[in-house]
């Protein structure tokens, strides 16, 4: 039984025919990491926002189910839904700087969640925050707790969000490109840390990324998204051995490797893109009949 199950989730731009998500289905079991890859603008972040109920006002869910631990979130009254999400889910957002309040120090921004939602004492929360910052390899956590977001480097901000996502020990984490600002050595440590915490708490993790290298290191399964449509849903090893969809194959082939200095930067071939786009349109037509 999966901890998170999304079934036939569709989303539209309000009052317009533009489709953002097209019958998306995916599952994340407890203790599993599911990778979510796909071109920029494919709707990866929208899936994350739909789960956490933070979709922009201009986008509405037109159908489907988001089942968290046996309950369909979309059927719950808003207040109940929010408390449930606040208790069990956390997001590592794509935009670290905008996710942090620019006019507050880092310390309270991490501890407030613990104090307000999990009713920790402030002293405990602060101790935990310091530990977490050290665990994500932030030098001088004391100083960072007292800094404002703009006084930190991009990678530090990102690690702060990783730390605060793990702080409340959630059951599901949606990580939206969580390591884009990290150098590879820190990234490696963080990915290991994530795997470790996950093993310890059995967290389910939905991991959005563009880096197939990262996918091959942390994910057990993988969904490939294009234009809001899931093209492929595979076990990780199967994907790297024999990608099912032509688009996935092209994606894998186009991924640059540092070991290959002459590998030119080739985009996914136009023919593959055209075929995939046609597939998305065909899916729309069959949905309308």
């Amino acid at each position: 039984m999966s901890y998170l199950t999304i079934r036939n989730l569709s989303a539209n731009l309000k009052g317009r025919p533009d489709r953002i998500l097209r019958n998306v289905s995916l599952q994340v079991a407890a203790g599993e990491v599911r990778g979510l890859v796909g071109e920029s603008g494919a709707g990866k972040s929208m899936i994350g926002k739909a789960i956490l109920g933070t979709l922009p006002l201009s986008i509405e869910i037109t159908g489907g189910e988001i089942i968290l631990d046996g309950t369909d979130l979309l059927k719950l009254p808003p207040a109940q839904r929010r408390t449930r999400i606040g208790q069990f889910c956390a997001l590592i957002p794509q935009d670290p700087l905008t996710a942090l309040n620019p006019s507050r120090r880092i310390g309270p921004q991490i501890t407030n969640r613990l104090v307000d939602i999990l009713r920790w004492t402030r002293a405990d929360a602060e101790k935990r925050a310091r530990e977490l910052l050290a665990e994500v390899h932030i030098p001088d956590p004391e100083r960072v707790m007292r800094s404002y977001p703009h006084e930190l480097s991009g990678g530090m901000r990102q690690r702060i969000l990783i730390a605060s996502a793990f702080a409340a020990e959630p059951k599901l984490i949606v990580a939206d490109e969580p390591t884009t600002a990290l150098d590879v050595t820190v990234q490696k440590q963080i990915l290991k840390l994530i795997a470790e915490m996950q093993a310890r708490h059995g967290t389910a993790l939905l991991f959005v990324t563009h880096d197939l290298g990262v996918v091959s290191k942390v994910c057990q399964s993988l969904s490939v998204l294009y234009g809001g449509l899931v093209l492929e849903d595979s076990r990780m090893t199967d994907f790297f051995h024999a990608p099912k969809h032509p688009y996935s194959r092209a994606l894998l082939a186009a991924t640059p490797k540092y070991t290959d200095p002459d590998g030119s930067l080739t985009p996914v071939p136009d023919a593959v893109v055209a075929a995939t786009r046609a597939e998305v349109e065909a899916a729309d037509r069959s949905a309308h009949v």
Partner: peptide, 8 residues
């Protein structure tokens, strides 16, 4: 592109 012109 009509998105920003969505009537509120």
């Amino acid at each position: 592109d009509g998105r920003s012109q969505i009537k509120r």
